[in-house]
Write a protein that binds this DNA or RNA. Structure first.
Lengths: 369, 369
DNA sequence: TTTGACGCCCAAAGCGCTTTGAGACTATCA
DNA sequence: TGATAGTCTCAAAGCGCTTTGGGCGTCAAA
């Protein structure tokens, strides 16, 4: 009867079969030292034989741990169409599964409350910890979770970041190296195709862009700094706007590869050649980047590895390690492919090579191709 | 003390404050009819006041419902880089959150067991139901879940599909209309750039492709039917192989938009023009499809809506509705953009327009551009 | 021999909820 | 008036596990 494999067996049943108490069986299975080796082996064997697996709900109720961590989907669907996101998830799942943790995906839920999804996870004690991404400069989720005492780790920093755990790419560096790359190709009119201002990663990348420009003795032209609504069409329109300026850019630093795709289309639809008339640099190095036409020069960050690390960090924080220990900033790397090229190749300024970095105040040549 | 909002309050505490029994409070909150309207209102008000939310774990243990559904990530990472997947997830989350359900994402786990992730969800009773995707012609997951008595719904059918719930695109129709479209553009050498044979959607789409060809009086050329390893590079290589045949295709039906991207790059790197020398049709209509160069003609299925519907169906099955009631096949629609064009524009067969469908056995002209 | 000190095991008390099976009233009908 | 039928509420029994706080041998040291 109890040996019927299709009949779920519980701890009590298993204990009965073994002629032991539930306590002993439980402790044997959970690796307590006050169970003799011999008994443990006997228990384990029988458990395997009968296909015993503890009921996750019961264990959770008792232990007060949910063995679950949460992730709340933002409401802007465009965010999660990005393959980088799937990679992040996959990376997280990878380590969580290994440790028998679940990853639950929630949404913000109806109503305007941007904390809705988080409240639910916290109030109903559905999770032991939470992963955030797309952090904002002033991120209310961080304040909320901090106050609620819920362990969390964010993919990205924030200006209110205090002692919490985070993993972030060095966004400023990313903006910097992309811009440096273009400066090295003698570009002088370099645009920044960004995400909404509030996002920390946008803020930092813009800073890197500005720093590189300033170091090269160039001023920031506000006309060249745009913000998109974070959808592909947004970046297409924004890029089109840039290209139609009186003094269009010969290069565009894009906030991510998806935006770069939009920019590429915009360049083409203006009758220009990507990598010649206008150089494009993306960010993330999503899988299709290498397969675009032209293959995209981009700044790479390994989302899957980031997902793994985020999960590890969060688990450590849940286990009681101080969150402030886990603050990592990863260096991005430039992946050079073919969407960028020397400025002199651009037909946008046919009167000649753009002015050198050392002569910034010399007026830029006018006229479009 | 009990009114300290930072202090979590439980059912017992709430009952004490109200001077009622836990039973009554519980029943009031859960909408039982044997609680007077007056009491219910009083309970609800106090619960709101004190910020009471039931402990999800406890409720789950008691009720035997986990209020959670599961999704297991396949091991081929390429599958989930596809934006369609994020859409599917988002759609599911949308309806699940509304009904206070969680969506847990798991992975197959280490070891070769392809059912690993599923076993875990089932054995430890972590979920009330499961969503499958990427079904195979002979899908062991279906057999497993059927036997385990775990409610599930699959996105895609299978040849072993019996009475379980599924939602699927009409894949055969999708393959058919894509191929018909190309036939209508007078293409005669039409290739099929597919996924591995075992996948049901691949199987069906191939069938649609073959049917269209046969109806047009054309034979199937096995050389034109390829299978990729389901990564972008795979489709690039497969497409390159096709284009280097002695009699290359003037059109390619791709298994999805990601594969189409690979194919597009392949076409270009062979010095050919997409939409002129070689027409390309994708599948899914992922967000970037409209922004590719050229904008991709594709067969559309609304993944987000599919996600929503899958969740609804699964919830219904969990609630006890017979699974066999929920078997839906959605009609895909052709979205014409610019990656396909008339066969006569192709430089691959400069000797003239390919033979008409009515004269299939006439030998095809040879020679490449 | 007594006293600890281990080593191994167990009964019982929860974890926070839902549900069962009654009980105490009040209203209705014969 | 008693019987019958609601109406509203409650005590207590779990759900399946973990953990606390012993208990009972056995063995070495005193």
């Amino acid at each position: 009867m109890h040996s019927n494999p299709s009949q779920r067996i519980d701890l009590k049943g298993l204990a009965q079969v073994l002629g032991l108490s539930m306590t002993t069986v439980s402790r044997a299975l959970n690796g307590y030292s006050d169970v003799s080796e011999k008994t443990r082996r006997r228990v384990e064997k029988q458990a395997r034989l009968l296909g015993y697996t503890p009921n996750a709900q019961a264990r959770r109720l008792t232990s007060g741990m949910t063995e679950t961590i949460g992730f709340v989907l933002g409401d802007v669907s465009g965010y999660y169409d990005d393959p980088y996101f799937a990679q992040l998830l996959a990376g997280m799942s990878e380590v969580l599964t290994r440790l028998n943790y679940d990853l639950v995906i929630s949404t913000r839920g109806a109503g305007g409350d941007p904390l809705g999804g988080y409240r639910r996870l916290v109030d109903e004690r559905r999770v032991d910890g939470i992963v955030l991404d797309r952090t904002r400069r002033d991120d209310e989720r961080i304040a909320f979770l901090l106050e609620a005492g819920m362990p969390f780790v964010s993919f990205g920093r924030s200006e209110v970041s205090g002692d919490h755990a985070f993993l972030d790419a060095d966004c400023e560096e990313a903006g910097y190296i992309a811009t440096r790359r273009l400066l090295g190709l003698s570009h002088r009119r370099i645009a920044f195709l960004g995400a909404p201002r509030g996002y920390m990663f946008n803020h930092l990348r813009l800073r890197g862009y500005e720093r590189a420009l300033n170091e090269a003795g160039l001023d920031i032209d506000p006309q060249l700094v745009t913000v998109t609504a974070y959808e592909e069409e947004g970046s297409f329109h924004a890029a089109t706007g840039l290209l139609r300026l009186d003094h269009p850019p010969t290069a565009i630093v894009c906030i991510d590869d998806m935006a770069a795709m939009g920019a590429i289309v915009a360049v083409r639809s203006e009758g220009l050649e990507v990598g010649e008339d206008v150089s494009i640099i993306g960010y993330n190095d999503i899988a299709p980047a290498a397969l675009m036409d032209p293959p995209l020069t981009t700044v790479r960050i390994d989302s899957r590895a980031a997902g793994r690390r985020l999960a590890e960090m969060l688990l450590a924080v849940i286990a009681g390690r101080p969150a402030s220990v886990f603050q990592e900033v990863w260096a991005p790397t430039l992946v050079v492919r073919s969407s960028d090229g020397p400025a002199f190749a651009s037909r946008l300024y046919p009167t000649g090579t753009p002015p050198l970095a050392t002569t910034p105040d010399q007026p830029l040549p006018a006229g479009e191709a």
